[in-house]
Write a protein that binds this DNA or RNA. Structure first.
Lengths: 109, 109
DNA sequence: AAAATATATATAGTTTAATATATCAAATGA
DNA sequence: TCATTTGATATATTAAACTATATATATTTT
């Protein structure tokens, strides 16, 4: 129903998994009950802003508001980090040679 | 206490004002009570995620989660739009000639 | 197969967001 | 000055988030 919301929740789960964290691990780190994390990820509850921020921070994510106009540019930054050959976790190369969204830090600064 | 939260609320108010909208106008457009908007902007309440998104969308903002690492790059995009000479609303020129954060659209695509 | 781990789900109790509505004070404008 | 607009604040009610805890159901590992 709400694209922005679904997208946000999906990001949370994606990044958690990318960090190879279980809901329990995230629970331990964030202080939120595992059951609550499950409910949030599945859209069963509508978390409070502070809860979302807490969860995000634990996953080293920051929440920001972006003018809709700037969204494409911002997405471009968030999605990839530049053109690299070997890319994904398992050594696969994505079609366009770009990193997947929310890839783990391989420290490429 | 929570930088991310304060920042978010500040952005909401800033953009609302930049659009020359009163809380009542925003209320009418978003469907949320003016009293609630006031409480949210002042951090009196901890809004639900859906509420924040609703408010943001009304102001043509999208909420996204950004890897902390990418934050500087993203902020750079959100803050300015390039180097222009005359800049601010009233024709002032900022010191570095960049647009202020969350400037109104002058359509510079 | 059994054990361990991970996720989804349930219940009961507490806290708080959200609503409608109204009012007050301060700023703005006629 | 008087009227309007704006934002903050208050109250009462309803809905829902959040907590702790427990359990059931996968999924993975040994």
């Amino acid at each position: 129903m709400n694209y922005n919301l679904e997208q946000t929740l999906e990001t949370l789960r994606t990044v958690r998994l990318a960090n190879k964290m279980s809901q329990r691990a995230l629970s331990a780190k964030s202080g939120l009950p595992q059951s609550h994390i499950s409910n949030i990820e599945n859209g069963v509850v509508d978390p409070k802003l502070s809860t979302l921020i807490e969860l995000a921070r634990t996953l080293e994510l920051e929440l920001i508001l972006v003018p809709r106009k700037r969204l494409p540019a911002v997405r471009a930054i968030v999605r990839n980090t530049g053109n690299v050959a070997r890319d994904t976790d398992d050594g696969r190369v994505t079609r366009d040679g770009l990193r997947p969204a929310y890839s783990l830090d391989e420290d490429d600064a």
